[in-house]
Nucleic acid binder design. Sequence first.
DNA 1: CCCGTCAAGATGCGAC
DNA 2: GTCGCATCTTGACGGG
Length: 268
Amino acid sequence: MGFDDICNTGLVLGLGFSSTADHKSKKITTTPLVGKGPCVGFEEPSLTLSLISGDRTYEQQAIKISKDHQSADLYRQDSAASSYSNASVKRERDVGSEETTTEVERLSSRVISDEDDDGSNARKKLRLTKPQSALLEESFKIHSTLNPKQKQDLARELNLRPRQVEVWFQNRRARTKLKQTEVDCEFLKKCCETLTDENRRLHKELQELKALKIAQPLYMQLPAATLTMCPSCERIGGGVGETPSKNAFTIAQKPHLYSPFNNPSAAC
DNA sequence: CCCGTCAAGATGCGAC
DNA sequence: GTCGCATCTTGACGGG
């Protein structure tokens, strides 16, 4: 039993993304905008099973999976609270109680040492202080990209170099996007699982409906007005005749009723 | 600006 | 308590 049989029964099983009522766009977007919930922009995946039989249309509603908005705060903030440790100190957590330097003092020495060209080209790992991270996060929430003036102002306010602010924003964007991609990926996996289950269920239902139709007399099956033709194989979808010419008149007479194959991807 | 990558520093955890 | 190791986080860089 193949798809030809399905076409001949007038039953249509479709799997795809159901667009919104206005059918505006079929594109899947994964734009990882800040503050956006996961999967915003996804078309809702759906499975449909239609019986094109007279005035009866049996349609399964689209599956809707909603997800809670994920907090925009994707990253730990407390890590920045940890102090900037001296390389000579084996483990700062072991001497945490001795920490007397203020964030500002550390920041100052940090920036000075950054600006001092001591001749070494080794990368220096800066750990931003908690207030610095907080301010950067705040700015990022307002605008995820900075113009030169904003960058300058922020750098001045944070006592950092503009380049450091710029790099921080670049990293923040990249990691936000990565996180969003992971979330989207998980969502799509769940969609796939759900649709697979739904597809299986609908196939079963399709078999049952076909069995029901076979049990009916031929004249009780499909009114001629609902017969459809697949544009790709030019076969009548109503399941009555073998040759296209024999039944094609129903299409010409009722073009508006030509439903299941309007979408070429739905052709059998 | 984005992307991939490196690497410093932080953190967690088991062994002793 | 601390040591060693694995893993994670995140600032920085180079190339496209």
